[in-house]
Simulated assay, not measured.
Amino acid sequence: MSEKVLELVVTGTPERLDRWLSTQVESLSRSRVQKLIEQLSVRVNGEICTAKKATVSQGDRVCLTIPEAVPLALMPEPIPLDILYEDDQLLIINKPAGMVVHPAPGHPSGTLVNAVLAHCGEQLKGVGGVLRPGIVHRLDKDTTGAIVVAKTEPALHSLQGQIQTKTARREYLGIVFGAPKADSGTVNQPIGRHPKDRKKMAVVPIDQGGRQAVTHWQLQERLGNYSLLHFRLETGRTHQIRVHSAWLGHPIVGDLDYGSGRSAGVNLAGQALHACRLTLSHPLTQAPIVAVAPLPADMETLLNRLRLRT
């Protein structure tokens, strides 16, 4: 695994370099960017930048070198998996709430990657690098549902391409607070890192570092002061559905970051958001694959309780 070099061009109004870079590269926090600046890994218009508070303006060319990651000791763990589909190219899993997708600081084990390594054995070695073997896309720790893992390098590139070109279809069900006036709609609001809490995302204007984010939603069921919504992602920003739902004024039930966290009397394992259907093309045959993940028991319980109230 070699170092990664990103060539970026600044658009919009002048902004601090560290803040601008953290909004352009979702995987990097502002503190991580500052450390890279200290390590002389950032150039602006060909010159090494050493000032964290440097300002960049429209047209500036920024070169960011991300050093080779120090691999975590990824250990296979025999964690049970709810498998929706599997062949020699890919694996689709119904992820439970509370499971992190890949190891990271604070979550060194018990992740989906640890479980998949135990399930697939040596087949995953080297697929997509050592840190996130086979990972095509992610689900938040407390979001449940269908997630695909590639077993081969060609499958990884094919599936990632389908996500990027929007030919893969990702659908979700979520229970939200309140009742939308309309029966359907689209949220087209850019998302970037929260200006005050770097662990959260927010609706942020593009000229301030936000990236285009589009979520289509449709009302499935009115449940008094709650609603069951169907979501379809057109883009895949971090926390996209949760941020857009909160922006609509109807946050996801049980969401501790973007809502009140209340769960209508049901002890939810996470937020009431579930990746219910994943549609993609097989990497080799191009045959359509549709994986349907049944709702987790706690969301079913919540829905049944809300139905009894209405």
Rank of each mutant, 00 (worst) to 15 (best):
N114R: 01
G259E: 02
L268H: 05
E300S: 15
Q212K: 14
L112F: 09
L229D: 07
Q58C: 15
S245P: 04
L303V: 10
K181P: 11
N94W: 09
L84W: 04
R138G: 00
P14A: 04
R211V: 10
T238V: 12
Q212A: 13
V290G: 08
V203L: 04
G161M: 10
E26R: 13
Q123K: 12
L284E: 15
L223E: 03
L302M: 06
T23A: 14
H274S: 08
Q240G: 04
R32I: 08
A155P: 01
R309V: 10
P251S: 07
T215R: 05
A73P: 09
S41P: 08
P288S: 02
L228W: 03
S22T: 03
L303S: 00
I79N: 03
S184H: 15
R61D: 01
P180Y: 14
R61M: 02
W20F: 11
V176F: 00
G178F: 08
V10P: 02
S184L: 14
L81M: 04
L64C: 05
L159K: 02
V127K: 03
L295R: 07
A54V: 11
V127P: 00
Q271M: 13
A272M: 09
Q24E: 12
A182M: 13
E221R: 13
P251I: 06
D140H: 01
V33N: 00
A115M: 07
G110L: 04
L295C: 06
V44Q: 06
K166G: 01
H274W: 09
S260P: 09
L17P: 05
V116R: 03
V101C: 06
T215G: 03
K35Y: 08
K200E: 05
G98F: 02
T65A: 14
V116K: 00
V113R: 07
E68Q: 11
P96V: 11
G178S: 09
L64Y: 08
A202S: 13
M1P: 14
V253L: 11
G249F: 08
V176R: 00
I289L: 05
L8I: 07
K199M: 12
H137G: 01
E68M: 08
K199E: 15
